[in-house]
Amino acid sequence: MRDTGLRGNALVGWIVVLFLILPLTVVIPVSFTPERFLSLPGATWSLRHYRAILDDPTWLEAFRDSLIVAIGATAMAVVLGTSAAVGCWRLSSRLSEFIRMLMLLPIIVPAVVHALGFYRAWVGFGLIDTHAGLIAAHGMKGLPYVLITVSASLADFDQRLEMAARSLGASPARALRSVVLPAARPGILAGAAFAFVTSWDELVVTLFITSRGVVTLPRRIWDGVQDNISPTVAAVATLLMLVTILATFALARKRTQS
């Protein structure tokens, strides 16, 4: 009785998982269609849409722009987020807690709201449609994730260890480098992963503050979906899905091992 009930729960769970995954896999066969429009391939499968990615320089440029922006934004978010998290951890005053809340704003504020603000401000700063401008905006969006993950990894770290290092003659900077940062390492890496993915997938802000000069992969896909949808987009989507799935499994494996 109890057993069948539990199996029923599991069944519902697996159905939900199928609902989450299965509809997405439709892009895989579609990407192999020999036709020029979105359709399931019949008897013949074709690689023409994968060749089209390589033949069309705009896809490769979009990949390059996405990579540049994501790496830049991740570096910015990691430096600022880690610095703030370490500072707040050691200070833990009312004021520093308030500042920490303020730094969470970029994940609370709806994307379209800060997209408008970035647009207006970047016009003044001369950052519209530049790599630097997009890196700055994406860096701000990544900062809260780094702050959260680094704070989490420092939450159980005893402040007295840092004091001990200081009493043994280490300068604050030395204590930070040799004692605090090693403890924060898992949080820094997790935060970097979040910041990278945030930038890599970001579309709404990108739509507002770039036009022709910087075209990231999501923007290129968006443009491709807006006019006539070519199966090339399905091929790109298939490749991106593959990367996501491999990365998820690699991370899950690493987590179970450690």
Binding site: L24, W200, D201, I229, A237, L240, M241, T248, F249
Partner: peptide, 22 residues
């Protein structure tokens, strides 16, 4: 099951919407 949930969690909103459109 958790892996499948996370994989769909990490997949971009644009790609998902495109798949539904297809």
């Amino acid at each position: 099951m958790l892996g499948a949930l996370l994989a769909s969690f990490w997949l971009s909103v644009l790609i998902r919407s495109f798949a539904w459109l297809t």
